[in-house]
């Protein structure tokens, strides 16, 4: 499934044109991206939480050469699925 499938389902359900449906779906992900970029988490009930975490710098090794390198501090995005989503995925058909 890709964005195109989500656009199609918005188009079929809402009555907006394909072009408008595409703009709306694009807008949803744009809002989410700017929110996360600002370090704010997003909680979608029944789906899961998107959380930005700060990782401290640490020493690591280049696995190819074995030389020790400094891995800089960074921010990463994590997704924690809700119990509802986990249960749905494990349901037998």
């Amino acid at each position: 499934m890709t964005k195109a499938d989500l656009i199609e389902s918005v188009y079929l359900t809402t009555g907006f044109s394909k072009k408008e449906s595409a703009a709306i779906v694009e807008m949803v992900f744009d809002i989410m991206k700017s929110t996360l970029e600002g370090g704010e988490k997003i909680k979608i009930a029944g789906f899961g939480n998107f959380v930005v975490k700060e990782k401290a710098s640490r020493r690591g090794r280049n696995p190819q050469t074995g030389s020790e390198i400094e891995i800089s501090a960074r921010k990463i995005l994590t997704f924690k699925p809700s119990q509802v989503l986990k249960a749905a995925i494990n349901e037998d058909f």
Binding site: T2, K3, L6, V10, T13, V25, V28, F29, L85
Partner: peptide
């Protein structure tokens, strides 16, 4: 729209499908 998006992703995952949102 929001329910379609997250419901759609959840349904696809339940069927074992992968969902790819470019840039996200």
């Amino acid at each position: 729209v929001i329910n379609l998006i997250f419901g759609g992703i959840g349904d696809a995952l339940s069927e074992g499908s992968r969902v790819e949102i470019r840039g996200f």
